[in-house]
Design a protein around this nucleic acid. Sequence first.
DNA 1: GCGACAG
DNA 2: ATCTTGTCGC
Length: 228
Amino acid sequence: MVKRIISENYVKSRIPKGFNLEAARMVQRRLASMVATTPLRQPVDLVTGIDVAYRGNYAYSVAATYSMELNHVIEYGCYEGEVTFPYVPTLLSFRELSPMIRAFMRLKRRPQVVLIDGHGVAHPYRLGIAAHFGVVMGLPTIGVAKSLLYGEVKGSLIIDPSNGEVIGGVVGCGRHEVYVSVGNMITLNDALVLISRLCLRDRMPEPILYAHTMANRVKHSGCINALI
DNA sequence: GCGACAG
DNA sequence: ATCTTGTCGC
């Protein structure tokens, strides 16, 4: 239904002076080749959602670990710091990956799956931030986005217009819909089922919803005050 | 030819 | 994403 092709000229006009876009694309292609679409190898209880909020040149990221058995968050991880790269479509991970990893690393417990606010392989170079995070951390990840960046929606699937491959799916989340794609170490079907189960409220699955709320709280009160 | 474009 | 008042609804 929707078809999109990213303009590389637009990307070039937005990247910082001196940034080697060709090298970045090579890195994305290489990491994309390391994405695994293998089934999960353990039952899922702990699911961490990560989101980032901004104010000026500062980023506030939160990792919220949700227990599917207990139906609530068991732990938060937080990070706040200056951002070093602008928002450029297709290069989101160069801006948000570091803040996300720093918040995630503050968690004491390790989840079975990580949910990222953004796309997984539904990306022109097959390396959206969820896939980037998954490959770098060596963990199962799923990309959950509120709008489409790349691909063509046919029914409830997202198709790569360049080769016809299935790169993601659409899941109803309350009144809205979210675009789901594999990040790493999970199958698309498992990803779609899991996200559906976690869409208890509107807009986003629970773990990301909590991360989003807390990221905004951190933006106003700081890491220490917000998480106590 | 211009514009599209995750957060 | 963020900048922002009032306003609608539970």
